[in-house]
Simulated assay, not measured.
Amino acid sequence: MADRASPWYSVYRPRPDAEVQLYCLPGAGADATMFRPWADRLPPDIELRAVRLPGRHAPHPEKPFTGCVEAADRLATGLAAHLRVPYVLFGHSMGALLAHQLIGALARGGLPPPLLYVSASWLVEGTPRERLPDPAASDERFVEVLARLGGVPSRVLADQEVLAFTLPVLRADFELCRTYRFDPGAPPLTVPVRAMGGVADRVTPVEEMTGWARHARRFLGTRCFPGDHFFPRDQTAQVLGVLVEDIRAVRAAARAP
Score class of each variant (00 low, 15 high):
residue 120 A to G: 07
residue 199 V to W: 06
residue 156 V to Y: 13
residue 186 A to Q: 15
residue 182 F to H: 12
residue 135 P to D: 06
residue 119 S to T: 07
residue 123 L to Q: 01
residue 145 V to T: 10
residue 225 F to P: 01
residue 194 R to Y: 05
residue 150 G to V: 07
residue 208 E to L: 15
residue 190 T to D: 14
residue 107 A to T: 14
residue 224 C to Y: 07
residue 201 D to W: 04
residue 207 E to C: 09
residue 132 L to P: 00
residue 201 D to A: 10
residue 204 T to H: 02
residue 137 A to S: 11
residue 190 T to I: 12
residue 112 P to E: 11
residue 142 F to D: 08
residue 223 R to I: 12
residue 213 A to Y: 01
residue 103 I to F: 06
residue 154 S to L: 12
residue 128 P to H: 10
residue 175 E to S: 15
residue 98 L to I: 13
residue 171 R to H: 14
residue 150 G to A: 05
residue 98 L to A: 01
residue 141 R to K: 15
residue 225 F to I: 03
residue 224 C to A: 15
residue 186 A to R: 13
residue 166 T to C: 12
residue 194 R to Q: 14
residue 133 P to F: 01
residue 179 T to N: 02
residue 130 E to K: 11
residue 190 T to R: 14
residue 155 R to M: 12
residue 209 M to W: 00
residue 187 P to H: 09
residue 188 P to S: 08
residue 134 D to L: 08
residue 165 F to P: 02
residue 196 M to K: 01
residue 137 A to L: 07
residue 145 V to H: 10
residue 228 D to A: 04
residue 171 R to T: 09
residue 213 A to I: 12
residue 135 P to T: 02
residue 160 Q to Y: 07
residue 229 H to P: 01
residue 219 F to S: 07
residue 179 T to I: 05
residue 179 T to R: 03
residue 150 G to C: 09
residue 107 A to V: 14
residue 174 F to C: 09
residue 127 T to S: 01
residue 217 R to C: 14
residue 141 R to S: 13
residue 105 A to H: 06
residue 114 P to W: 04
residue 143 V to G: 04
residue 230 F to T: 04
residue 148 R to L: 13
residue 189 L to T: 10
residue 178 R to I: 05
residue 100 H to A: 07
residue 104 G to A: 08
residue 178 R to F: 03
residue 159 D to H: 09
residue 132 L to T: 05
residue 188 P to Y: 06
residue 104 G to W: 06
residue 138 S to F: 02
residue 154 S to Q: 15
residue 117 Y to W: 15
residue 131 R to V: 02
residue 185 G to Q: 11
residue 193 V to K: 00
residue 226 P to C: 04
residue 110 G to E: 11
residue 111 L to D: 05
residue 209 M to V: 09
